[in-house]
């Protein structure tokens, strides 16, 4: 575990906490894409299939449980909690899951490190995570009305990806045989998707103005 990996995991954890805070305390999910949250459930469910079969550390297992549990509970709140569900921008959040999932399934079947069930599912989760934020970014662009917590949530998620890239660079130079092209390329694609959002986030922060995306 290096400092970049830890910083990445902590920003990821913070992003989930910010979102839960918004949903749990303010009872609002305005501006949050249910499609993206459902895709994250699928990402974690397919990636952590090994949760009971391979043990790395208490830290790893605990974090897996946290990410699985939090993503499930966010989706549950948005779908079934009456007050929260009322604030959901259903008409704007129209991205089709299959439009993202199908190419990821095909790509995972074609490009993977090993052709085993667990490995293909793991690879699928990497590809899907790379694009899972797209419905959220589309929703932001449509509503244009971004509250602070939603902005911080996406900022922290993007930060998590940035730290993971630093972690890979660090590990590449410090550990022998550490080469994972599929993880790196899909991770890089994922981080690049945040570039546009980051640009406007910093702009609004610099000018001390409310975050607004151009139409």
């Amino acid at each position: 575990m290096n400092i970049f990996r830890l910083a990445g995991d902590m920003t990821h954890l913070a992003s989930v906490l910010v979102l839960l805070l918004k949903i749990h305390t303010i009872k609002s999910c305005a501006g949050v894409s249910l499609k993206t949250q459902e895709l994250y459930v699928i990402v974690f469910a397919t990636r952590y299939l090994d949760i009971f079969t391979s043990f790395v550390s208490i830290y790893n297992s605990l974090m897996k449980l946290i990410f699985l549990g939090s993503s499930f509970s966010i989706v549950w709140y948005m779908r079934y909690h009456k007050a929260v569900h009322r604030t959901y921008d259903r008409e704007q959040d129209t991205f089709r899951h299959w439009f993202l999932m199908l190419p990821c399934i095909l790509l995972a079947l074609l490009i993977h490190e090993k052709f085993t069930f667990f490995e293909v599912m793991w690879t699928f989760s990497l590809y899907l995570e790379a694009v899972a934020i797209l419905p959220q970014l589309v929703l932001l662009q449509r509503t244009r009305n971004i509250d602070n917590l939603t902005g911080q949530y996406i900022f922290l998620l993007g930060g998590y990806r940035g730290f993971y890239i630093l972690n890979w660079i660090y590990r590449y130079f410090t550990e022998p045989h550490y080469v994972h092209w599929i993880t790196w390329i899909s991770g890089l694609v994922q981080t690049l998707l945040y570039a546009d959002f980051f640009y406007y986030y910093f702009l609004s922060w610099k000018n001390n103005k409310k975050l607004q995306l151009p139409a």
Partner: peptide, 10 residues
């Protein structure tokens, strides 16, 4: 080597 296949990232 087999050890490098351990998935230790989240």
């Amino acid at each position: 080597p087999e050890d490098d296949d351990v998935k230790d990232e989240l």
